[in-house]
Computed example of a mutant assay.
Amino acid sequence: MEEKELTPQESMALIQSMIGKSRKRYSDNSFFFLLWGWIVLIASLTHFYLATYTTYEQPYIAWSLTVVGGVISGIVGARQGKNAKVRNYSDKMYGWLWFSLGMAMFTIVFNGQLINWNTVPFILLLAGVGTAVSGAMMGFKPLQFGGFAFWILAFIAFRQPENYQMLLLAFGVAIGYLVPGYIMKANFRNNGV
C-alpha cells in the first residue's frame, strides 16, 4: 500500500480532528469533576460546621462521603473503560495521573496524625497538580485556572487553623472542579466537545 502525501491543509485538518476527538473524550470526565467537587464541598463544609459550631467530637465523619465517591467513581470508570472503543496513550496517562494523585492523597490523610492533621494544604497542592495537568492535556483553560487556584489556596491554607482550611478546600473545589466541570458539561451538551 502506498502512503499518500498530505497537503499542509490536510495535515492541519487531521490534527484538528484528532484534538477535537480527544477533547470530546475528555469532556465526558465532567462527571468525575462534578462528583468529587460536590463530595468534597459538602464534606469540607460539614466538617467546618461540626468543628466550629457544635460540640461533636468527630467532625471528620463528614469525610465518609468519600467512600461513596470512590465506589461510584470505580463503577463509572469501569463502565467507561468497557465502552471505550479505543484507549490511547493519553487516556492511560490521564488515568494514571489521577490514580497516582489519589494514592498520594490517601497516604497523606491516612497518616494525618503524624502531621497533626494538617493535611488540607497538601491535598490542595495535589489537586492543583491533577487539575492543571488535566487542563493542559485537554487544552481546557478553566481546569488550568482551577489548578492555579488550588495552589494559591494551598499557600494560604498552610497559615490557617484546621477549621478554616476546610473553608479554603470548599472554595478550592468550587473553583477548581465545579466551575470547570459545569463548563465542560455545557460545552459537551451544546457542541459535542
Results as ranks from 00 to 15, higher is better:
residue 149 A to W: 04
residue 145 F to M: 02
residue 124 L to P: 10
residue 111 N to Y: 13
residue 141 K to D: 00
residue 76 V to R: 02
residue 90 S to A: 04
residue 65 L to K: 10
residue 96 W to L: 15
residue 80 Q to K: 15
residue 66 T to H: 03
residue 91 D to A: 05
residue 72 I to N: 01
residue 76 V to H: 07
residue 91 D to I: 06
residue 110 F to Y: 15
residue 116 N to Y: 04
residue 115 I to W: 03
residue 96 W to I: 14
residue 148 F to R: 00
residue 135 G to A: 03
residue 128 G to Y: 03
residue 112 G to W: 11
residue 74 G to Y: 08
residue 149 A to K: 00
residue 67 V to Y: 13
residue 63 W to P: 09
residue 112 G to K: 10
residue 90 S to M: 05
residue 132 A to D: 09
residue 96 W to Q: 04
residue 124 L to D: 03
residue 104 A to G: 06
residue 67 V to K: 08
residue 124 L to C: 11
residue 119 T to G: 04
residue 107 T to W: 13
residue 139 G to Y: 06
residue 134 S to M: 04
residue 81 G to V: 08
residue 98 W to L: 04
residue 125 L to C: 09
residue 73 S to T: 15
residue 99 F to I: 11
residue 138 M to A: 14
residue 146 G to F: 04
residue 96 W to D: 04
residue 146 G to Y: 01
residue 94 Y to K: 07
residue 79 R to F: 14
residue 146 G to H: 06
residue 136 A to I: 11
residue 113 Q to D: 11
residue 135 G to R: 05
residue 79 R to L: 13
residue 126 L to F: 15
residue 83 N to Y: 07
residue 85 K to Q: 14
residue 98 W to P: 12
residue 63 W to S: 10
residue 95 G to N: 00
residue 119 T to K: 02
residue 96 W to E: 04
residue 71 V to C: 04
residue 86 V to E: 11
residue 78 A to Q: 10
residue 93 M to N: 07
residue 116 N to P: 02
residue 79 R to P: 00
residue 102 G to H: 00
residue 140 F to K: 08
residue 71 V to A: 10
residue 82 K to N: 08
residue 70 G to H: 04
residue 77 G to E: 01
residue 106 F to C: 08
residue 94 Y to V: 14
residue 122 F to K: 06
residue 132 A to M: 14
residue 101 L to Y: 09
residue 102 G to E: 01
residue 132 A to K: 12
residue 150 F to H: 10
residue 137 M to P: 14
residue 150 F to Q: 00
residue 67 V to C: 03
residue 122 F to R: 01
residue 94 Y to E: 08
residue 69 G to K: 07
residue 77 G to Y: 05
residue 92 K to G: 12
residue 125 L to N: 05
residue 103 M to R: 00
residue 65 L to E: 06
residue 75 I to W: 01
residue 95 G to R: 07
residue 85 K to S: 11
residue 139 G to K: 12
residue 84 A to N: 09
residue 126 L to V: 13
residue 91 D to F: 09
residue 127 A to C: 10
residue 69 G to N: 06
residue 143 L to N: 13
residue 94 Y to A: 12
residue 86 V to K: 10
residue 138 M to L: 09
residue 120 V to S: 04
residue 69 G to M: 08
residue 110 F to C: 12
residue 108 I to T: 10
residue 150 F to T: 02
residue 78 A to S: 09
residue 144 Q to E: 05
residue 129 V to P: 12
residue 100 S to I: 08
residue 69 G to E: 06
residue 122 F to M: 09
residue 146 G to E: 00
residue 81 G to S: 08
residue 78 A to I: 12
residue 141 K to Y: 02
residue 123 I to F: 08
residue 67 V to R: 05
residue 114 L to W: 07
residue 129 V to M: 15
residue 139 G to N: 13
residue 87 R to T: 07
residue 117 W to R: 13
residue 80 Q to S: 06
residue 138 M to W: 10
residue 116 N to L: 03
residue 121 P to A: 01
residue 106 F to H: 08
residue 96 W to S: 14
residue 116 N to E: 07
residue 77 G to Q: 02
residue 134 S to L: 01
residue 99 F to D: 02
residue 64 S to Q: 04
residue 134 S to I: 02
residue 145 F to Y: 05
residue 63 W to F: 15
residue 136 A to W: 12
residue 150 F to K: 00
